Simulated scan of single mutants.
Amino acid sequence: MTLATTPRRRIALVAPARYPIREPYAGGLEAFCHTLVRAVRSLGHTVDLYAAAGSQGHVRDVELPGISWSRDPLEASDTAYPPGARAAEDAAFHRLARHLAREGYDIVHNNSLTPVLFEHPLPLLTTLHTPALPEVQDAIAAAGPRAGRFTAVSAATAADWVLPRPATVIPNGVDTDLWRPGPGGEAAVWFGRIVPEKGLHLAMDACRRAGIPLLFAGRVGDHRYFSTEIVPRMTGQAATWVGELDHVGLQTLVSQCHVCLVTPRWEEPFGLVAFEAMACGTPVAAFRRGGLGELLTSAPAALAVPDDVESLAAAVHVAAGIDRPVVREWVVRHHSLTQVARRYAELYSEVPTR
């Protein structure tokens, strides 16, 4: 089915519940949801965003509660829950599911990490953004064919799940009008969530070994990790934290840097920051791990042995020699947001309505 013959759909896009969908984004998943909503709307579909309180442009009458660590900020993490928060989140998703059924959407595009939606009769299309989560996997198994259709952001991620039918692999896309090329510079850059699984401390060690200063930006998602592993490495001018930036600020920073380090310590499903950096023309040195390693294998990028600082330092020097226009052109050709939105629009027409 071509784009011209794809019927216009009424779509509910369900975001993850932990953080608001607004800039500065809490992470790549939140950024994906917001940018995809705009891109799919531009194709003529009606898209309603369901997300946490405090989001931008969402349906306010049926909000998800979000997570607040205000009573114990030092315990904050991106995976745990403060007391009572998990039960409140599950209850909110049950209310949302009943609302979605009453509204009669053509498609419910689920990007959340909850098992709850699989317990309700909805026309689901679920995008898998993470390796298999036991509770969600169990809910999918219990639902069987009623679980709907699935996409995954990489083949590596798709392979980690057991599904009623194979997932369609649709890698994430980058808004190449926003992430524009820049002149480069002298420093390296790292940006993303500052949590142990993102491996910022290894990027800091590699840049010190490579003899290049590092600028890093992002939200502190684990305060203990930040205080014990990051702050002690911020000596002299070796590494500088520039805070949490919105996309405009990040584009300015990244486009004026020499090379970008991407250092996952888990099986990274996609690694959006790598593609955002490349859209700025900034070459990437990354650990060859998960979907990130899969998708960058044929890219103008330098891949390193996972968790190996020496290998990463060598990859920094290799990446620094890659031509910036070549890097930018590869992302435009393979990972533009417009291409991704069109692929989803075509897939929406294949999801059976209920």
Rank of each mutant, 00 (worst) to 15 (best):
Y225I: 14
L128V: 11
E186G: 05
P352Y: 00
F216W: 02
A285S: 10
A31Y: 03
R71W: 02
Q56D: 15
R86L: 05
T240M: 04
P213F: 09
L113P: 10
A91W: 06
A315M: 11
L296D: 15
L245G: 03
A92C: 05
I11T: 03
W266V: 15
A147S: 06
G185K: 04
V331Q: 04
V220D: 05
A279H: 07
A141C: 07
A92P: 12
A159G: 10
R60D: 15
F93A: 08
M278E: 05
D90M: 06
R289C: 10
R41M: 00
S55N: 06
S154H: 02
R86F: 04
P65R: 13
D205M: 07
A299I: 03
R209T: 14
S55F: 01
R208L: 15
A155N: 02
G57Q: 11
V162R: 08
R41G: 03
A158P: 08
H94A: 15
A299S: 06
R149T: 12
T240Q: 13
T263A: 15
Y25T: 11
C260T: 07
V331K: 00
G281T: 01
W241D: 02
W266S: 12
P181V: 14
L292W: 14
R289N: 09
T297L: 08
P325N: 06
C260N: 04
E135P: 14
A52C: 08
S227F: 04
H317V: 08
R265P: 13
V220H: 04
C260G: 04
E229N: 09
S298I: 06
A206L: 04
V62N: 07
Q237V: 13
T127F: 01
R102Q: 09
C260F: 02
L133C: 06
P24V: 14
I67N: 09
V340L: 05
R8T: 14
H58V: 04
Y344D: 15
T228Q: 05
P325T: 09
G293N: 11
V254G: 08
A132S: 09
G243S: 04
A85S: 12
G199A: 11
Q56F: 00
E329I: 07
V47H: 09
R86N: 03
T228V: 09
H334W: 04
T79A: 07
A76Y: 07
V162F: 07
A88L: 06
E267A: 13
W241H: 01
I11H: 01
V59Q: 14
V259H: 02
A92T: 11
L261R: 00
A87M: 02
E310W: 06
G27M: 00
